[in-house]
Amino acid sequence: MTLQEIMALHLVNLAFARDRAGRICVAGTAAPWLTPELRGRAQALAAAGEFVALEAMLARSVWRYSGKLGGVARNAGVDFLLRDTCAELGPAAANGVLQRALGVAVDGRLGAEVRAVLAGAEVEPAPLLRALDAARRAAGSDAGRARAAVRLAQAFAPRATARPLTAVAAG
Rank of each mutant, 00 (worst) to 15 (best):
A121L: 05
A153E: 08
A157Q: 11
G144N: 01
L152R: 03
L98P: 03
G108N: 04
A119N: 14
F156S: 03
P127R: 09
R147A: 15
A101D: 00
P91F: 15
E122P: 02
A134F: 04
V114L: 01
V150K: 15
A149M: 04
L152Y: 03
A94I: 03
V114C: 04
V114H: 00
Q154I: 05
G140E: 10
G108S: 02
E113F: 08
R100S: 05
E88L: 10
R83V: 04
L98E: 08
A126S: 14
A116K: 15
R109M: 10
A126F: 02
L98I: 12
V150E: 13
C86H: 05
A149L: 03
R83H: 02
G103R: 02
A139R: 13
G90R: 04
Q154F: 03
V117C: 11
D133F: 07
A121S: 12
Q154L: 07
N95S: 13
F156R: 02
V123D: 09
R130A: 15
T85D: 04
G111R: 08
G120I: 01
Q154V: 09
G140M: 08
A112C: 09
L152T: 01
A101H: 00
R137S: 13
A134R: 14
D84W: 13
A143E: 15
L81H: 15
A131P: 12
Q154W: 06
E113D: 11
G96C: 11
A135P: 05
F156E: 00
G103E: 00
A155M: 07
A92V: 12
V106R: 09
A93S: 09
L129P: 08
A101S: 08
E88I: 08
R115H: 12
V106F: 00
Q99C: 03
R147P: 02
A143D: 14
N95I: 00
G144H: 00
A131H: 06
R83M: 06
A155W: 07
L132K: 09
L110P: 01
P127W: 12
S141C: 13
V117G: 02
L82V: 10
P127C: 10
